[in-house]
Computed example of a mutant assay.
Amino acid sequence: MHSPTSNSDTYLKEGQVAELLGLPVRTLQSWRLRGGGPEFYKIGRSVRYKRADLEEWLASRKASSTASVGAFPDQGRNCHE
């Protein structure tokens, strides 16, 4: 008998992450190529994001002003938005 997977152990598909973040899938693809986005898992041709990793990455993006946004490594990159 399998125990239920906790929410933080859930793996999300690329489209689910894009929808959750309100971003185009192309932005996630660009971040995977150039860096700066959340960590991901490559399983064959599939890409998955662990919910816990995504939540951690998102928390690291928290800013109290627009001046603090320059501290993020992907600032200024073309994100296809």
Rank of each mutant, 00 (worst) to 15 (best):
residue 1 M to V: 04
residue 1 M to A: 02
residue 6 S to Q: 05
residue 6 S to M: 04
residue 6 S to I: 04
residue 7 N to W: 03
residue 7 N to C: 05
residue 7 N to Q: 13
residue 9 D to Q: 07
residue 11 Y to T: 04
residue 12 L to Q: 03
residue 18 A to W: 05
residue 20 L to Q: 09
residue 21 L to G: 04
residue 21 L to P: 03
residue 21 L to I: 02
residue 21 L to N: 08
residue 21 L to D: 11
residue 22 G to R: 01
residue 22 G to P: 04
residue 23 L to T: 08
residue 23 L to C: 07
residue 23 L to Q: 09
residue 24 P to L: 03
residue 25 V to R: 08
residue 25 V to C: 00
residue 25 V to M: 03
residue 25 V to N: 02
residue 26 R to A: 14
residue 28 L to W: 07
residue 28 L to H: 11
residue 29 Q to T: 00
residue 29 Q to C: 00
residue 30 S to K: 15
residue 31 W to S: 11
residue 32 R to Q: 14
residue 32 R to T: 15
residue 32 R to H: 13
residue 33 L to I: 10
residue 36 G to P: 10
residue 36 G to C: 11
residue 36 G to T: 10
residue 37 G to E: 06
residue 39 E to M: 05
residue 40 F to W: 12
residue 41 Y to T: 06
residue 43 I to L: 14
residue 44 G to Y: 04
residue 44 G to H: 06
residue 45 R to F: 10
residue 46 S to Y: 08
residue 46 S to D: 09
residue 46 S to L: 12
residue 46 S to Q: 13
residue 47 V to G: 00
residue 47 V to Q: 01
residue 47 V to M: 02
residue 47 V to P: 00
residue 50 K to E: 11
residue 50 K to M: 12
residue 51 R to W: 10
residue 54 L to W: 07
residue 54 L to P: 13
residue 54 L to Q: 10
residue 55 E to K: 09
residue 56 E to D: 02
residue 57 W to Q: 12
residue 57 W to A: 08
residue 59 A to E: 07
residue 60 S to C: 03
residue 60 S to K: 08
residue 61 R to G: 01
residue 62 K to C: 04
residue 62 K to M: 04
residue 62 K to W: 05
residue 64 S to C: 13
residue 65 S to Y: 06
residue 65 S to H: 07
residue 66 T to R: 14
residue 66 T to Y: 05
residue 66 T to H: 04
residue 67 A to L: 11
residue 68 S to C: 09
residue 68 S to D: 11
residue 69 V to A: 06
residue 69 V to Q: 06
residue 70 G to Y: 12
residue 71 A to H: 09
residue 71 A to K: 09
residue 71 A to Q: 15
residue 71 A to R: 15
residue 72 F to E: 09
residue 72 F to I: 07
residue 74 D to P: 02
residue 74 D to F: 09
residue 76 G to M: 08
residue 78 N to M: 12
residue 78 N to R: 12
residue 79 C to V: 06
residue 80 H to K: 11
residue 81 E to V: 13
residue 81 E to T: 06
